[in-house]
Design a protein around this nucleic acid. Structure first.
Length: 320
RNA sequence: CCCGCCUUAACUCAGUCUGGCAGAGUGGUCGGCUGUAGACCGACAUGUCCCCCGUUCAAAUCGGGGAGGCGGGACCA
């Protein structure tokens, strides 16, 4: 049973640091806590879902879940005014609830505790032990302006470290872009007498155009996208025939569709072979690589199934 | 506190000396070619020229004031 839990938690994960520690944690009887933090800014998109679904995996493995709506982090990272960010935070919580996190999930707003004296002291201790170079490098993948960083962006990683210690987190979940901050946290927390968190890192999705995902380039699918919008975005996605390397449409199948549907049925015009079904991603990928599956049929199916995943979330969001 | 440089399209930047319709590349949108997208070809759209005041028939451009960024200097009993 434990092995099954571990397999589920490790599915579609870029890395776990370390797998042994993770297995040991899942093996314990005592309650353990996992968390992921999100900067509330911009629409929630498929990239966010990757970590959110990982939290759900952990939840079903018996782990307590904290979702941190990191309003102060977003502020420190120049994502907007506090008021704008709070507005997004409310929206994020609605989205996370809608997408299937269980009722007992704890949602926390960073500012609810990050201004407490004890927390502040922890920040100062961490500041005392963290070099500027280390803090800056840890933010390379997280901050937008790699050059000309502001001091607040140096506070960001030590606050994230403080969160993990302060909230007694056993497992920190995040995209692989969080890696350097998490490694800093493991090192610093350990040397300061806290336990180091196990870290689970999900892949960073490629944008639909094959480049880095960016809200400003409109190459991502948001949970609020209409079926028409999803269809249009998938249609225009980069998808060279027989190429499985860095193919954003195949990513949709790997990370979203197959984990949720046991049987995937793709429509296809008779002249090209008629409908075809798959039970696992590997087989679909092999067929695509062999040229047995045309990109357009792949896209049509992806749009249909992604809508089936995102549609219900959108439905809950707009039900009131 | 002092000195120098920078700020123009979503991005990177020309243009400022010598005032005269706001530019290029990348990106974007639309179309053609492909049973998808990309590539390629064709077309289209970019805008608070950092802000304010002044000079002028006319200011991105000249003068004054200010803001933000970058670099240096000075201070270091």
């Amino acid at each position: 049973m434990i092995y099954v839990k571990f397999e589920q938690v490790m599915n579609n994960v870029e890395e776990a640091v370390t797998e042994d520690e993770l297995a040991a944690l899942l093996d314990t009887e005592t309650n353990i806590t996992a968390y992921a933090g999100y900067e509330p800014s911009g629409q929630l998109h498929l990239g966010h879902l990757l970590t959110a679904y990982k939290l759900i995996d952990l939840q079903s493995a018996g782990v307590d879940i904290i979702v941190l709506l990191a309003d102060l982090h977003a502020y420190l990272n120049e994502k907007g005014t506090i008021d704008q960010i709070r507005e997004w935070a409310r929206h994020y919580q609605e989205c996370f609830t809608a997408l299937g996190l269980a009722e007992e999930t704890r949602f926390m707003l960073g500012s609810d505790y990050q201004l407490e004296p004890d927390y502040t002291k922890l920040i100062l201790r961490l500041a005392r032990h963290t070099t500027l170079n280390r803090a800056r490098r840890s933010m390379d993948e997280v901050s937008r302006n790699a050059e000309d960083p502001v001091v607040s962006q140096m506070i960001y990683p030590i606050m994230q470290t403080a969160d993990i210690g302060y909230l007694n987190i056993d497992i920190a979940v995040g995209g692989i872009d969080q890696r350097k901050i998490h490694m800093l946290a493991r090192e610093e927390l350990h040397s300061m007498g806290f336990q180091s968190p196990v870290c689970i890192h999900t892949p960073i999705l490629l944008g639909l155009d094959g480049n880095k995902m960016s809200s400003s380039k409109n190459n991502l699918i948001a949970v609020e996208d209409s079926p028409e919008s999803i269809k249009k975005k998938v249609d225009s996605a980069y998808c060279p025939a027989r190429t499985i390397q860095d193919n954003p449409v195949l990513q949709l199948y790997r990370y979203f569709i197959f984990p949720r549907f046991k049987q995937v049925e793709l429509e296809r015009p008779k002249q090209y072979g008629g409908p075809i079904g798959y039970e696992e991603f590997a087989k679909l990928e092999t067929d695509f690589a062999a040229g047995k599956l045309h990109p357009l049929d792949l896209k049509n199916g992806a749009a249909t199934y992604i809508e089936r995943i995102v549609g219900p979330i959108r439905g809950v969001l707009y039900s009131d």
